[in-house]
Design a protein around this nucleic acid. Sequence first.
DNA 1: GCAAGGTC
Length: 895
Amino acid sequence: MASGGNGGGGRVIRVLNVAEKPSVAKAVSGILSRNQGGGMRVRDGRSRYNKIFEFNYTIRNQPCQMLFTSVTGHLMELEFDDRFRKWHSCDPLHLYDAPVRKYVPQDKLDIKRTLEEEARGCQWIILWLDCDREGENIAFEVLEVCRQANHNLNVWRARFSALIDREIHQSVQTLVQPNQLFSDAVDVRQEIDLRIGASFTRFQTMLLRDAFVLDFATDDRNLVLSYGPCQFPTLGFVVERYWEIQAHEPEEFWTINCTHNFDEGSATFNWMRGHLFDYTCAVTIYEMCIQEPTATVSKVKQQEKLKYPPHPLSTIELEKRASRYFRMSSEQTMKVAEDLYQNGFISYPRTETDCFSEKTDLRTMVQEQGGHPVWGSYAQRLLDPQSGLWRNPSGGGHDDKAHPPIHPTKFSAGESRWSQDHHRVYELVVRHFLACVSKPAVGAETTVEIDIAGESFFACGRVILAKNYLDVYRFESWGGSVIPTYTFGQQFIPRSLTLDSGVTRPPPLLSEADLLGCMDKAGIGTDATMHDHIKKLLDRFYAIKDSSTRFSPTKLGEALVMGYDDMGYELWKPYLRAMMECDMKAVSMGTKRKTEVLETCLQQMKACFLDARANKGKLFEAMAIFFERSNRSSGGEQQVVGDVVRRCGLCLESDMVLRQKPDGNFMVGCLGYPQCRNVVWLPGSLSEASVTENTCTSCGPGLVYKIQFRFRRLEIPPNYSAQHIGCIGGCDDILRQLVGICGTGSRSSSNTFGRGRGNPTASSSAQRGNSRAQGSCAYCRQTGHLSNDCPSQASRSCTARSQEVDLQNGLENLQSLVIHVERLAICALPILPATGEESSFHVNHGSAIFSFGKIPSVEVSAQILLRPLAAEEVVVAKVLQIPVVCHLCQQQVNQ
DNA sequence: GCAAGGTC
């Protein structure tokens, strides 16, 4: 760095230094002023929090009088021009184009004045903002204010990642320029967040708040139904898990366990099949085993296994581990970590980085811990080349280029003012750091497989040969169980052979740590803001946290997500934020221009907003499921409740009525909604529909009233009549054809996971067999029921015919299939499907012939599911020929 | 009255 034109000779220059927070100004001033003549003086600025520290310092032989003050985070905010700020001042759509400006808010004006006043008397400014994107943006905010007061300032940026002497002294001697690209990326984020957030928030608040009785709010006139690109995906995680739990149907399964006693203890052998859902099948195999219980060792495998230490510590990992090991809330963890950081004990606690740069002097850091009464001896051993314990840390592949992983920066054996949580967090940081630079633990693993009456069982044993990093990382263990030495061909009689049952369980509600994990994975929020987003869900009545700190959505939260989901939008999913984050990265790296990213992103969001507004009926409808309509509605959103068409065949309790939704589409839905989700969507080309007094002569059970339909002429093929009296009972081919041609008013059925809407009688085997449980009917493509309960089908035989054709076509066209055996009826023993075996077979015009060489010809009838073979999947059937039975209609389709 | 990001 040149000494600059402002310096000159030995003349002392005045340097204004600005940090992101008062504590950093104080800490850096303390470090720089130490051992400098004149000491450090403190005086007040305009803001009572942001003091000004003064001391002398020499930068590259240039004597400087340093003035060190601070801001408190961002100095400026982005806002719409005044004429767009009132909610009713404009159409929310205009918020995508309305002019925005940056301004210093009222509560930051005193800081601004301090900066202006001090900048006037200085020749240089050094920006000590945090070294991340936001810090770079704040640096430019500070610059804007200071340059207004003094055009001739010589500008420098200090880069540092820990408040420790050598870092700070080094950074002030190697000053750089502020990075405009990093700052640009933040400008982009701010503008997008503001425009999307404000437009959607105004839109949905004004649409829904007054239209429904929101019983949870004391004053719902002031309620804000906010939308934000971080808060909504966070809500989405909560709702998605909640739906997953609702959709779960417990199912009993069976497994066979085997134990073997020996002198020193016992070994447990697990069934290779894992478990079966069919009792008859499981008990048959079990009886086989009981009749011939002699176990023969069929395989003995010995292997050395390594257990690796964790990657260097990032913020999220710190939060998760503190939660797991100490049950500390992540909020408290960060509070304590911030305090430890500000007192120099650990490095900056808000970091994404989980790898150390090669320049880091890891050994010196380890050395500093050598004197600790508890882990000091481990640190010493680590540095001893004889021990062979050292290993250069492996990185987890994340680097925010601003901060190193969290590591100890100052030795402490505990301070008197520390709370228990301070001790815990410091210990975790130190032990984690020492573990990172240690060798992995080494174990010897033995796997033994046995055969009882043709069934396979396995047992694993492990002996730890070298604990290595586990010696210092007391939070992790590597359970080892000892099993005796077995030899191939050895035989024994098991001590016990039991048939045990279990029940499948839904996943638990999301805990705070789970939620943080989801957000982290999806890139929602930053280390410093994730908690705010979670808190916002509670503040907005979108979610609640129960006594075991698990989250579930409120009616409001669920309704909003359901509304957008029904539109087919993924505004509640994390993809939008991920895309924005990707673009921001591109801006900060200089590969995309700020204006270009802003323009494309806002254009897309504007189109999305327009679409959402056009489909607001879906939002309205979802809210109507959970809330009563309010009589102070602004109107225009009335849902027509029409006449009864038939008794609901699904819940058998309520009537199905013809309805027109706010978006104009027609449907016949069950009045038992939301408990009963039976619905028949009518063609999207309908302009009018009314229930007649005529009943269908072929459909039942009970009376099914015919409907008078009027179609929009231009939306149906010319050979169809625009007027039609039809039946939704399943007999009406014209109606079915028009649904096929024009689609329905329903959302697309392909984009969502079954969200608890599955009806109570839905086939559990179908759900289980299909790894992506579909909440939609395979026959009519509608949601709310599955094919075997398709209400638009007059009888099962109709479904069966249709499925038969589909499956046979599928068999002709598919090159490979997964045969997922769901239920077995055993015709002959002992040939049964075994899991995990790979085989090949060919498909021959509707009948699947499976060739497995060594297996004798035995027929096994099975209920199976056919679907395309994914790369990682294996065929699980082990039979010569299976009659292919459709899992939906229960009929054999390959006769 | 709206976002998310800093920070107190």
